[in-house]
Design a protein around this nucleic acid. Structure first.
Lengths: 121, 121
DNA sequence: CTGGATCCTTCACGATACTG
DNA sequence: CAGTATCGTGAAGGATCCAG
């Protein structure tokens, strides 16, 4: 996403940009989370992740697969069965994500409080 | 990720959702990063973060401020001078973000490789 | 210099219907 | 059940001009 003429920070084209791209994807984190406990079928994820549409889930899963974070296994059955699973690479990403959720548990209330304080001004 | 015991829906309203919202914001992470080394002026950030528009930066900074992650200090000068700085709360978020950038440094190449492999199909 | 207000374009996303 | 295709809407985001 970027060629920048910026300075020394991480914005130029350092690899961190990549992580941001992956994480910034609206449904990626949630989907990864849905896969964190083992293989899941498309329909299972659909239920597990409330609020995501079939289209977005498919799209997100394909992207994760293309990035080598998940695998897609289709079983030739009727009815068709497709399972997604984290790759080893994908699993390595779960640790940073867990850090994030831990942060949210620790400081989420503070953020909400700040938000309300500024809204009620 | 504490709660997500069994058949729980991750998305429902667990605190992690908040972190996802903050992080998912396209420019938030980059902006936080720009502030991680100390107070920065609006214009400085604009240069530091290549590719961001003035509008988006303002908008992102306001949201960070509302969330209690940054402070805005305006000095009554001519020309006007406004500095943004991470709050203590904001600084706590930097650790998870650093985890992410570390991940990117470690595994970014793998992701790119996977991406190219799948694109070249 | 900072940042608000418009305008305008693009696209992300959901809903729906259809294929295998 | 899994995935694709199409369409429509609303939001995101850039460019530009204006104000303090």
């Amino acid at each position: 996403m970027g060629d920048f003429t910026g300075g020394d920070v991480f914005l130029a084209d350092c690899p961190a940009r990549l992580a941001v791209e992956i994480i910034t994807d609206k449904w990626a984190v949630v989907t990864l989370y849905g896969l964190s406990r083992g293989p899941r079928r498309h329909g299972e994820l659909l239920d597990l992740i409330g609020g995501i549409s079939k289209k977005m889930l498919t799209q997100t899963l394909r992207r994760l697969t293309e990035h080598g974070l998940a695998t897609r296994m289709a079983y030739a059955q009727v009815p068709q069965r497709v399972e997604y699973e984290l790759t080893d690479l994908g699993k390595t990403l779960m640790k940073p994500i867990e850090m994030l959720t831990e942060w949210a548990e620790l400081y989420g209330a503070d953020v909400v409080a700040a938000q309300e304080a500024s809204t009620a001004d």
